[in-house]
Design a binder for these strands. Structure first.
Ligand SMILES: [Mn+2]
Ligand SMILES: [Mn+2]
Ligand SMILES: [Zn+2]
Ligand SMILES: [Zn+2]
Lengths: 151, 151
DNA sequence: TCGTAATTGCAACTTAGTCGCATTTAGAAT
DNA sequence: ATTCTAAATGCGACTAAGTTGCAATTACGA
């Protein structure tokens, strides 16, 4: 079996989604971490994998109406824990989630809330400025402004 | 009167705080923006001004027990609106607030939640990466790791 | 196929933050 | 100083994102 392209499940199910997902690298993560891919989890992952923009729990739920809210939140928390997905705060009413692939950041329009992804961002090493920390291994960086539509 | 050092109010009041505040620059903002400094607002501002670290609404409330929760939140929102204070998300249960003085960022310990401020951060201009925005005038940048106490 | 631990659905719950409205206050006019 | 009015406050009810306890279901290895 090719570990880069992995067929998780073929049969349809009561959740009404097509459960064929091919995602590079992800099966390796599954195995290394002893992770179990259930049908609801598969569905949630597929929605995020196929989305071109970050989604809220509510947006995910609306695409998967048969999966309970609690499951959605628990799954998102779980995926976030081992970094399969990222939970990002864009100063809205709720968090956004997206696949954790290439590191990037976001610009949010303060009027229409449109989100643009920016490919690259060069940051200084914060350890240079820190006296109290032994290591820093994560950061969040989001920009805010107005998009061209909203002038 | 020296506009750099401004005595807002001298008399004590039913809120039980000493209402003498001297804050550089702030009175100019008050005037320019037609801002009214009431006693609750004064008290909240003083707490933030004197704090060496960002505070949550709840922490501010606990220092000013006679001021209602709704007033605390409304005031914080109001101060935030015209940038007298900043509302920052450090991935906790609630937002933090701090005076908007010298631009800086934070490092948060994922275990004990201690917050270190870092004086300076050089960021690339995000407009270089943007296709959809006409301007970007704000960003949030916070770092996460482990402090020396928590190894 | 069975057994067991993990996961799900459901409904109740939590809690940071908001809102409507009556009361109080600030500050300007008289 | 007194009166006036708009703005701000206090209060309690409310909202909504997210969480939790628990019984039913599912995954998966023996
Ligand atoms: Mn993104
Ligand atoms: Mn700070
Ligand atoms: Zn816009
Ligand atoms: Zn720590």
């Amino acid at each position: 079996m090719n570990t880069d392209e992995f067929e998780i499940s073929k049969k349809n199910n009561k959740f009404g989604y097509s459960s064929l997902i091919r995602m590079q690298g992800i099966p390796i993560l599954f195995k290394n971490l002893g992770y179990t891919l259930t049908k609801p989890r598969e569905a949630i992952l597929k929605v995020l994998y196929e989305s071109k923009k970050p989604l809220t729990a509510e947006q995910i739920k609306s695409k998967l109406s048969k999966i309970d809210k609690a499951t959605i939140y628990r799954t998102l928390e779980y995926f976030t824990e081992f970094r399969l997905i990222l939970k990002i705060d864009l100063r809205g009413d709720s968090f956004f989630y997206e696949m954790n692939d290439a590191h990037h950041h976001h610009i949010v329009c303060r009027k229409c809330r449109i989100i643009e992804e920016i490919e690259y961002c060069e940051l200084p090493n914060p350890m240079i400025y820190s006296k109290k920390f032994s290591f820093i291994n994560e950061h969040s960086l989001e920009f805010y402004g107005k998009c061209k539509n909203c002038v």
